[in-house]
């Protein structure tokens, strides 16, 4: 793969900005860890050796209790199985994940009422929520959903924003004028309210919510794309491509887009943050993804309703602040790395 020297220079520059670079590494590690959350936060065992057979229950179909000699045919309770194996010592072996809970199950303690405070003994390292679900598990799975949601939202709104903006700048004239007016009208619709109204009538799914949000968030990008394209379209290389007989589509995608992409990349981290915030606020208000989807917004809402259980609010707020700070550090560094001026003089 040939890397454009300009791009290489920018990457070097980005790497030299330590705060942004380490934020990117940390964020990357977090996303990676969350993508494989099943391996370290799960109620299914990683490995079971039962009567000489080896089972890897993490991914794949559920194993009924009867597989391991239990008398029920629903999903095996691996925590109970682990206890049993520990007592019986009959050569069986079980390896549980670090945090042996999934984000949906309710773990209740006899004689106590949820939420339970953080406790290393119960392996609820951040405690549980008001229906006895592990907060750490819900944070991690909630993060995975939020980040994937945000990326998917970004993909749609960027595709729409970039193509429409480029077309406006490229063709100009009446098309530009009319589309501008349409975008102005659309921008004045309060998107979040519309989504809340819709969500109170029909329960949204992951995809429909992302599409709805995208419908109200693609407009901002068109302005930047339009001005950039306007500028590029009058350059000699575009005229040259024209005279060589290149089609409009080819000129836009092969010539103009690579030269405008720099400005768009600087927006990218902030758009990710905006996507996470939008999903979290909708969940907080109860108009987001349906229960029992793990969600930071729902945790925040539980926390503010029950301020006396500080661990709920504390976990959610810390997690949210951490991610938003990291994203902002990254964004800041990207912006600086892409800035054509290495030095700025103030007079």
């Amino acid at each position: 793969m040939i890397i454009n020297p300009e791009t290489r220079k920018r990457w070097q520059r980005f790497k030299s900005l330590r705060r942004g670079y380490f934020s990117l590494l940390l964020m990357g590690a977090m996303i990676f860890a969350s993508l494989f959350a099943e391996l370290w936060i799960n109620n299914r065992a990683l490995l079971v050796v039962h009567q000489g057979h080896i089972y890897l229950p993490t991914y794949g179909d559920f194993l009924p209790g009867t597989t391991f000699g239990e008398n029920y045919d629903w999903e095996t309770n691996y925590r109970a199985l682990a206890e049993k194996i520990k007592i019986e010592k009959n050569g069986d072996f079980i390896l549980m994940p670090l945090i042996p809970y999934n984000p949906f199950e309710n773990d209740f303690i006899e004689g106590e009422y949820p939420p339970y405070a953080p406790s290393a003994h119960n392996k609820h390292y951040l405690g549980t929520d008001t229906s006895g679900r592990d907060i750490l598990a819900r944070l991690v799975y909630g993060f995975r959903i939020a980040i994937l949601f945000s990326l998917f939202l970004l993909a749609i709104s960027y595709t729409a924003g970039i193509s429409i903006g480029a077309l406006m700048g490229y063709f100009g004239g009446k098309f530009d004028l009319i589309t501008q007016r349409i975008i102005e009208i659309l921008s004045n619709i309060p998107g979040l309210y519309v989504i809340m109204i819709i969500a109170s009538i029909v329960t949204p799914s992951f995809w429909s919510l992302a599409l709805l949000l995208a419908a109200f968030s693609w407009m901002g990008l068109t302005w930047y794309m339009r001005t950039e394209t306007y500028r590029e379209v009058n350059r000699e290389y575009v005229t040259a491509a024209h005279s060589l007989g290149a089609s409009h589509l080819r000129i836009i995608t092969h010539h103009i887009l690579p030269n405008t992409i720099a400005i768009l990349i600087t927006f990218f981290p902030f758009s990710v943050a905006a996507g996470i915030t939008a999903l979290t606020s909708l969940d907080y208000l109860g108009f987001g993804l349906p229960a029992p989807t793990p969600s930071w917004g729902e945790l925040l809402q539980q926390g503010t309703d029950n301020l006396e259980y500080q661990w709920i609010t504390a976990s959610a707020v810390t997690a949210l602040s951490l991610v938003l700070i990291l994203v902002n550090f990254i964004g800041e560094a990207v912006r600086e790395a892409f800035d054509p001026k290495t030095h700025t003089f103030y007079e």
Partner: peptide, 30 residues
């Protein structure tokens, strides 16, 4: 939405009977 806590607990045990319960929270008038 106060009922969500109750429903998520019911949902977990119903899965043991092989019943998948989806929760649809709507605005009271909806």
């Amino acid at each position: 939405k106060e009922h969500t806590d109750r429903l998520v607990v019911l949902r977990q045990d119903a899965r043991k009977a092989g019943i998948d319960i989806e929760l649809q929270l709507l605005d009271p008038s909806a």
